[in-house]
């Protein structure tokens, strides 16, 4: 699969306050982009705009799959997203959550694959516990299973290691590296360690696009 993400003149205003403007960049296959900047510089805002869950005030984000433009409404099929503010359904178990998500996505419910994902993030033993009984680190792990469920060509990670222990972080780094082999990754972070896999960086402190 050949993908391309093209960002043109993105600007976002919140309550009459400009968070950023004139953001331009392109992301092509087999690359990883780091979005950096201090707290409140708009990393999460930009990442949400890329994922299509927030609309920019100006500008546009285009997404191409094998050269074909995918409209905004259908992009969810190709994006995976992990963020601390993302929530799973508390009243369901991890397994039920993932099954529901697969059905809502209208993709085949592949139990073996779901098991595999849960084993990978080390939640398999607790797959039938309610999510409300999970610790925040466990919830974060579950979100990775959620993001990889549909094998997305583009993975967007906001603060990828929040709440995770050392073992969790190494799993995440593995995921990032694998994703880079098959598609693209966007990582919004403050951590210099998270950036090591990235070949492109946008520093929101300067609204600049620095190619490494």
């Amino acid at each position: 699969m050949d993908i391309k993400l093209e960002v043109q003149n993105i600007k976002k205003i919140f309550n009459g306050r400009k968070i950023f403007s004139d953001i331009n960049f392109q992301l092509e296959n087999k690359s990883a982009l780091a979005i950096t900047g201090r707290n409140g510089s708009g990393k999460s805002t930009l990442v949400k705009i890329l994922a299509g869950v927030l609309s920019p005030t100006n500008g546009q984000v285009d997404f191409y799959l094998n050269g074909k433009s995918i409209d905004l409404q259908n992009r969810y099929q190709y994006f995976g997203f992990v963020a601390p503010y993302l929530q799973m359904y508390d009243e369901f178990t991890a397994m039920e959550n993932l099954e529901l998500f697969a059905r809502i996505r209208n993709i085949e419910v592949d139990k073996d694959y779901i098991d595999l994902l849960l084993k990978r993030v080390n939640l398999y033993e607790r797959k039938d516990s309610y999510v409300r009984e999970y610790s925040s680190g466990m919830k974060q792990r579950l979100k990775y299973a959620f993001a990889l469920l549909h094998k997305p060509p583009l993975l967007i990670l906001d603060e990828p290691r929040s709440n995770l222990d050392a073992e969790g972080i190494s799993v995440v780094y593995q995921i990032i590296q694998e994703q880079k082999q098959s598609g693209c990754v966007v990582v919004a972070t403050n951590d210099s360690e998270d950036i090591q896999f990235c070949n492109q960086e946008i520093d929101l402190n300067q609204f600049r696009n620095i190619a490494k």
């Binding site: 869950v53 969810y76 997203f81 359904y89 508390d90 998500f101 809502i104």
Partner: peptide
Amino acid sequence: ERGTVMTLHLIAKPST
């Protein structure tokens, strides 16, 4: 209230 709006955004079209 549960903050799951974004989750739904990520798995389905708005009209769905």
